[in-house]
């Protein structure tokens, strides 16, 4: 039985697509057949981040409208053959996405894939609603910043009430916090919300903290998910996250400063 993961946030620009690309690649590299779907119709980005923008022939709207078969639209990733990408349409608008259409696609994908990662668009309208409606797990990507935290809180309320699991009275969606663009230095100087500040408001199970990193921009320019950059801190953070999601117990590495050890040793502030 496939596990459907939605990567959502409410707020835009916090790192949903970066996260979707990284964790779907991470799951595939661990040997699980994974597909990642772009739900942002009209503003598609996932294909760019995955580096397959020149190989898009058919998209999710074509499949919903019956213009193409699912396997014609799926793109196999060049770095890992267990990973496939289902791109969004760039020319249509989001009204083309329907609940029944999405349900059919997910049912068909569930026969072949172990993990289905849904990259949600920003906001709380149809696109975001459809991305999270069928989910089993939700990765709520949040920046340590006041508006992002409030929007994530809103999204959590919607996950608890407007999903299929909620409407059927089934076990609720498992919610995980992914705190991205975290800068321990700025937290220490009091400029940025700390992890505990965010947890005070959201009270979520923490899956991982992703540090602010230049490697994210470099990777998206190169069209490879940042998790493949094994030297980068962000890449390692995502690797930790995938491991934790799969059950491994890994300590949180990116909450404190890199220089923390030396500071403690020499008694700095």
């Amino acid at each position: 039985m496939a596990r459907i993961i939605v990567v959502t946030s409410g707020k835009g620009g916090v790192g949903k697509t970066t996260t979707s690309a990284a964790i779907s690649m991470g799951l595939a590299k661990k040997g699980h057949k994974t597909v990642v779907i772009d739900f942002d119709v009209g503003l598609r980005n996932l294909d760019l981040i995955m580096g397959c923008e020149r190989r898009v022939v058919y998209d999710i709207i074509n499949v919903i409208n019956g213009e193409a078969a699912l396997n014609q639209a799926l793109i196999k990733d060049k770095n890992c053959n267990l990973l496939s990408i289902l791109p969004a349409s760039q020319t249509r608008n989001k009204d083309a996405l329907t609940l029944e259409g999405v349900e059919k696609i997910l049912e068909e994908l569930a026969k072949e894939f172990k993990y289905i990662v849904c990259d949600s668009p920003a906001g709380i309208e149809t696109g975001a609603h459809l991305a999270m409606y069928f989910a089993d797990d939700a990765f709520v990507v949040t920046n340590p910043e006041v508006s992002s935290v409030r929007d994530s809180d809103r999204m959590l309320g919607l996950l608890a009430s407007k999903s299929r699991r909620a409407e059927r009275g089934e076990e609720p969606i498992k919610e995980y916090l992914l705190l991205s663009r975290y800068s321990p230095e700025r937290v220490r100087s009091g400029e940025m919300l700390s992890l505990s500040d965010v947890q005070d408001i959201l009270s979520l199970h923490l899956l991982g903290v992703i540090p602010e990193s230049k490697s994210v921009l470099t990777s998206s320019n190169a069209g490879t998910p940042v998790i493949l950059d094994e030297k980068s801190d962000a890449g390692q953070a995502y690797a930790d996250i995938v491991a934790r999601y799969l059950g491994e117990n890994r300590p949180q590495r990116f909450i404190d400063d890199k220089n923390g050890f030396f500071r403690k040793l020499f008694g700095g502030k």
């Binding site: 959590l156 309320g157 009430s161």
Partner: peptide
């Protein structure tokens, strides 16, 4: 018994 989220 569960947190009341923003917007609820």
């Amino acid at each position: 018994t569960k947190p009341v989220r923003s917007g609820q």
